[in-house]
């Protein structure tokens, strides 16, 4: 019995030593060094592979970071904290980041903007655009076929009443939706800017009013009641100047006659209520 035990111990330790030596030998003479930093950086990245950094995925971005081909703040999703950590890890310095969120600059839901024709085809904005510009009577409004909502890797876009609405608390500002929208309605704006003019149509007020209840008719009430430079007049519409945006009180002060100058919260509220009304009916 004892002999068996001793033999087993001997055999196994012998095997262990031989294998250990063999592995050691192999790694010593044939080993290839890899950079462990890549894995460390990858752990700090969000790992959702949204492509906001214009690279195919987080792993690729991490490799580029370690190779010095990219800088951490190019990841629009990472928090300031994470970016700083990555920068420290790589021995870089980064400037202050401004958090951005997306906003859909259209207020024309199915109640406000007429849907002119029946549409029969793929439920996708880009596809619908290819057929006579889609069914909505406003040629510049939200088509409401949720292409952006499907594209959003964070589920931050909700379709309410056939209108895309961004939830600020979920949006990280990666910008995927901006590229998706065939009507270029989505903009990345500073998260601090809470007031928007929900209209993107460059058409004349008369044309807009024919098809929509809530267009920006460029009456300039907001421009007059706000400070200099807070708004920009672009042809037949007004846009918030996001480098110098007004505070939330501007909504009260200006009294937009068409109700298209709203805070993000008000906008969401309106759409929610309209939805409820519809359900109640």
């Amino acid at each position: 019995m004892l002999l068996t035990i001793i033999l087993s111990i001997l055999a196994l330790s012998g095997l262990g030593i031989i294998l250990g030596l063999a592995i050691g030998f192999v790694s010593k003479f044939f080993g290839v060094a890899t950079d462990p930093k890549v894995d460390l950086v990858l752990e700090l990245l969000p790992g959702v592979n949204c492509g906001g950094c214009s690279r195919p995925g987080c792993a690729d971005f991490a490799r580029a970071l370690v190779a010095g081909e990219a800088s951490p703040e190019q990841c629009p999703v990472s928090s300031q904290e994470a970016v700083t950590q990555i920068a420290q890890l790589l021995g870089m310095t980064v400037g202050d980041l401004e958090k951005k969120v997306a906003v859909v600059l259209c207020g024309g839901d199915i109640h406000q903007t007429k849907v002119k024709t029946l549409y029969n085809g793929v439920n996708d904005c880009i596809s619908a655009m290819q057929i006579a510009g889609g069914p909505k009577s406003c040629a510049y409004g939200c088509l409401g076929m949720s292409s952006c909502a499907r594209a959003c890797p964070f589920g931050a876009i909700e379709m309410i009443n056939g209108l895309a609405v961004v939830h600020n608390e979920l949006c990280v500002g990666c910008g995927v939706c901006v590229d998706t929208c065939p009507r270029d309605l989505i903009k990345l704006v500073p998260a601090e800017a809470k007031v928007h003019i929900y209209c993107s149509s460059p058409e004349k007020a008369a044309v807009k009013m024919k098809v929509c209840n809530v267009p920006c008719i460029a009456c300039r009430k907001c421009v007059k009641s706000g400070e200099e430079g807070q708004f920009e007049i672009k042809g037949f519409r007004v846009e918030v100047n996001y480098d110098n945006f007004p505070g939330e009180d501007i909504v009260e002060k200006s009294g937009c006659p068409k109700n298209c100058l709203l805070t993000t919260a008000q906008h969401l509220e309106i759409e929610r209520n309209a939805d409820k009304e519809e359900n109640a009916v």
Partner: peptide, 17 residues
């Protein structure tokens, strides 16, 4: 033990060659 060691060695060798 043998399998584990073997796989380790194969991995290293593959990476090299």
């Amino acid at each position: 033990a043998v399998i584990a060691a073997l796989v380790q060695m194969v991995e290293v060798l593959l990476q090299k060659f």
